[in-house]
Amino acid sequence: MLVLLPPSETKAVGGDGGPLDLDALSHPELNPARRELIDALRALAGDVPASLDALGLSQRQSEEVQRNAELLQSPTVPALERYTGVLYDALDVGSLSAAERKQADSRLAVASALFGLARGTDAIPAYRLSGGSSLPGLPPLRSMWRPVLEPLLADVDDLVVDLRSGAYATLARVPHAVKVRVLSEDPGGKRKVVSHHNKAHKGKLARALAQAPTEPADVDDLLAVAEAADLRVEREAERELCVVVSA
Rank of each mutant, 00 (worst) to 15 (best):
P6L: 01
S8R: 00
K11H: 06
K11N: 08
V13W: 06
V13L: 14
G14E: 04
G14Q: 02
P19L: 10
L20R: 06
L22S: 12
L22Y: 09
L25I: 03
S26P: 01
H27P: 04
E29S: 11
E29T: 04
L30I: 05
N31Y: 00
A33K: 01
A33Y: 02
R34A: 09
L37S: 05
L37Q: 06
L37D: 05
A40G: 14
R42L: 13
L44F: 14
P49M: 12
P49S: 07
S51M: 13
G56H: 06
G56T: 06
R60T: 13
S62H: 13
E64L: 10
E64S: 05
V65C: 02
Q66D: 14
L71K: 10
L71S: 10
S74H: 05
P75A: 11
V77N: 04
P78G: 15
A79M: 14
R82D: 07
T84N: 05
G85L: 13
L87Q: 11
G94Y: 06
S97Y: 02
E100H: 07
E100V: 02
E100W: 01
R101M: 12
Q103F: 08
A104S: 11
A104W: 03
S106A: 14
S106T: 13
R107T: 03
L108C: 02
S112E: 00
G116E: 04
G116P: 02
L117M: 06
